[in-house]
């Protein structure tokens, strides 16, 4: 009984979250004495065997042209076909936008248990016990299931990517997908950017920046670091920044290695989306800002003074390393 990994790609490249899902699946396979099978669905990167480097023993490709456009029901039907053909005990799906769409559909169609928001490797396999985040990061819960097959959906960046040395032998999976029940009209995506949930470094700013045009300071710091940019809810509500950058409870939840919050007071709704970041830096002119309590490092100061200095210091650091 094997482990199947849903291997997503965008714009002809595998997502970092896919490498992470493969690493996770490979560890389950190792712990349960089975094989890790990655499943690539629809249009795919040229080199599929690269997933071997991240732990896939085999890489299956279901290349029906109908799958080039994402539809949850169609993708779930192909994953189900792969589960039947390969004999899956565990399915690993990243908690990406598409992963979160597919996992519950697959769970129903395959009669499998679904555990989402997972942030650790299983603690045991008979029965399965795995830890997940709950209560908007204010709690952790060990979930268990007695179902024969379990789908585990992992939080991007929670587990990390690990390199393995597997063959990544490529095979074709013939599967007729279920009919699509949605039709894509258009896609509006910023090209070439790291998706926020997968970014390891994030520079985020709030109302303290005073006006949309002041984001040049934030973008310069982010570019210097190689970080993605994010913002607080008021900033996206005022349309200073696009809604897709809003992190927090009603926006996107992230857990980068480094989260730099500039001019964000740290309302509990904001913290719910970022408190799992590994390191948090808070820069705020108000020494009483609640965010300092959730921070690892804090600077009380004017963003318009501190941010350019920090950008220069990081440039100097990068030049000397």
């Amino acid at each position: 009984m094997s482990v199947i990994i849903f291997a997503e790609s965008t714009e002809g490249k595998f997502k970092k979250a896919t490498f992470e899902a493969c690493s996770y699946g490979a560890k389950i396979a190792a712990a349960t004495g089975s094989e890790a099978h990655a499943l690539v669905i629809g249009s795919a990167p040229a080199d599929l065997s690269v997933l071997g480097k991240y732990g896939a023993d085999k890489v299956h490709h279901a290349s029906d042209a109908a799958l080039d456009e994402f539809n949850g029901a169609a993708v779930a039907s192909v994953l189900k076909a792969a589960m039947d053909a390969i004999g899956a005990k565990y399915v690993v799906i990243s908690g990406s936008f598409n992963g979160k769409t597919v996992a519950p559909i697959l769970s129903v169609k395959a009669g499998a248990a679904l555990i989402t928001n997972v942030n650790s490797l299983p603690a045991s396999y008979g029965p399965l016990v795995v830890r997940r985040s709950a209560f908007s990061s204010k709690g952790l819960a060990d979930y268990t299931t007695s179902a024969d097959v379990a789908i585990i959906s992992i939080i991007p960046n929670a587990i990390g990517v690990e390199e393995h040395n597997k063959a990544g032998e490529v095979a074709t999976l013939d599967a007729a997908p279920a009919a699509k029940n949605t039709t894509v009209v258009s896609v509006d995506r910023v090209k070439g950017q790291i998706p926020l949930p997968e970014a390891e470094l994030v520079v985020s700013a709030g109302r303290g920046m005073k006006a949309a045009e002041n984001w040049t300071l934030i973008e310069k710091l982010a570019d210097t670091l190689g970080a993605a940019t994010a913002c607080s809810k008021p900033v996206s509500d005022m349309h200073w920044r696009p809604h897709t950058e809003h992190v927090g409870q009603t926006g996107i939840a992230i857990r980068p290695n480094l989260y730099i919050a500039i001019g964000i007071s740290g309302a509990i709704q904001h913290l719910a989306g970022v408190s799992n970041s590994k390191t948090i830096v808070v820069i705020n002119s108000d020494a009483e800002a609640p965010f300092f309590k959730a921070a690892d490092y804090g600077i009380v100061g004017d963003a318009f003074d501190v941010v350019p200095k920090l950008t220069a210091a990081i440039e100097a650091f990068k030049a000397s390393n």
């Binding site: 709690g139 300092f292 309590k293």
Partner: peptide, 18 residues
């Protein structure tokens, strides 16, 4: 299909370094 075996509160953060 699923049940919670155990809850836990996250470890509190170390104090901020200013």
């Amino acid at each position: 299909h699923t049940a919670v075996a155990q809850f836990e509160k996250p470890q509190p953060k170390a104090p901020v370094k200013m």
